[in-house]
Computed example of a mutant assay.
Amino acid sequence: MTARLLFVHAHPDDESLATGVAIAHHVAAGDEVHVLTCTLGEQGEVIPPELAHLDADHEDTLGEYRRDELRAAMAAIGAHHRVLGEDLASGRASRWRDSGMAGTAGAQHPRAWVRADDDVAVEAVTEVITEIEPDVVVSYDAHGGYAHPDHIRTHEVTRWAVSALPEGRRPHLFGTFTPRSWAEEDRRVLASMPGLTELGWQQPAGEFPPSVVADEVVTHAVVDADAVDQQVAALRHHRTQVTLGPDRTFALSNDIAALLSGREGYARLDPATGQPLECGSEPRRALVER
């Protein structure tokens, strides 16, 4: 039995970083996998110096460049993809714009995703869900992974869209979470890796982001080491945002080392509240029950 899955993300590269293992795993399983991206990531920081002119403080053409990165990444991983509100016939690349990190000026732009009218945004996402008719919809937890305003907005709009559907046509809604034991293990693995400081990278330290939760909250998982090769193939195309290192490591513009561990945690969310539906000690289940 094949399944249909829809991953809803805020910016290009989020899909490959946060859910790339699940996307690659389900593509390899023969499932129909769709990615919906809500903005083009116009406010992102640019890593390669030769592309710095693209950013919002200079040419402000980063969104179009990242759209091409997304196209190439999804071709590499094998998923269908679209940008929310994109209209190729009229030349509109997206309806809404990246709002930037909390406290930055990007949120004041009239097209900023965080300023989108609730009803209009929900209708746009509902149209996509209704067209695709997925069995499963995956987005962020209520904190947006690491409290990025666009991630939180994407979580809100996605769950409102799912909640608005008739109960019999409502897909399962999942949020992304990381069990604390996994996050702690990843830090130990990174600490034992030689050569990362030579790249100018720092070891992760301090408090974990809000999406790292008690192990029992994470009731579903995709664990597939083989999927990492396809995840890496996708991430190679997101070069404005991601630097790939040795042994399945990577860093963002903050130069903090991270690990592509071949495993991702999830929990079913209550569309009405955005909170995980259940906790327990049972073995973690797959996103799709076969």
Score class of each variant (00 low, 15 high):
Arg263Gly: 08
Leu260Arg: 07
Pro246Met: 11
Arg248Thr: 00
Arg263Trp: 06
Leu269Gln: 05
Arg248Gly: 00
Arg248Met: 02
Thr240Gln: 06
Leu244Asp: 02
Leu252Ile: 02
Gly274Ser: 10
Pro276Thr: 12
Thr249Glu: 01
Arg248Gln: 12
Phe250Gln: 02
Ala251Ser: 15
Gln231Trp: 06
Arg263Ile: 13
Gln241Trp: 05
Glu264Tyr: 08
Leu277Trp: 04
Ser253Leu: 03
Pro271Trp: 06
Leu244Met: 10
Gln231Glu: 14
Arg239Lys: 09
Gly262Pro: 03
Thr240Glu: 02
Thr240Cys: 15
Arg268Glu: 15
Leu235Asn: 09
Leu259Ser: 03
Val242Leu: 12
Thr249Val: 02
Tyr266Glu: 03
Gln230Lys: 15
Pro271Glu: 02
Arg239Pro: 04
Glu278Gln: 13
Arg268Leu: 13
Leu235Lys: 12
Ala257Thr: 01
Arg268Pro: 00
Pro276Val: 11
Pro271Ala: 08
Gly245Asn: 06
Arg263Cys: 12
Ala251Asp: 00
Gly265Glu: 04
Glu264Leu: 09
Leu235Trp: 09
Asp270Lys: 08
Gly265Val: 08
Asn254Val: 02
His238Val: 05
Ala258Thr: 02
Gln230Thr: 13
Leu277Ile: 05
Ala251Lys: 00
Arg248Leu: 11
Leu235Arg: 12
Ser261Gln: 12
Gly262Tyr: 05
Ala257Leu: 09
His238Trp: 13
Ala258Ile: 01
Pro276Tyr: 07
Pro271Tyr: 06
Leu259Gln: 04
Ala257Ile: 00
Ala233Arg: 14
Leu277Met: 14
Gln275Asn: 10
Ala258Asp: 11
Ala257Pro: 06
Asp270Ile: 08
Ala258Trp: 02
Thr243Val: 14
Leu244Thr: 07
Arg236Gly: 09
Gly245Ser: 10
Thr273Glu: 06
Arg236Ser: 13
Gly274Met: 09
Val232Asn: 05
Asp270Gln: 08
Val242Glu: 03
Ile256Cys: 10
Ala258Met: 14
Arg268Met: 07
Leu260Gly: 01
Glu278Met: 09
Phe250Ile: 01
Leu252Tyr: 01
Arg263Asp: 03
Pro271Val: 05
Pro246Val: 11
Arg268Ile: 00
Gln231Cys: 10
Leu277Thr: 12
Tyr266His: 07
Phe250Glu: 00
Asp270Phe: 08
Asp255His: 15
Pro276Gly: 10
Tyr266Thr: 09
His238Ser: 10
Leu259Phe: 13
Ser261Tyr: 06
Arg239Thr: 14
Arg248Cys: 01
Ala267Gly: 08
Gly262Gln: 08
Pro271Gln: 05
Ser261Trp: 05
His238Asn: 14
Gln275Leu: 15
Gln275Glu: 14
Ala267Arg: 01
Asp247Trp: 05
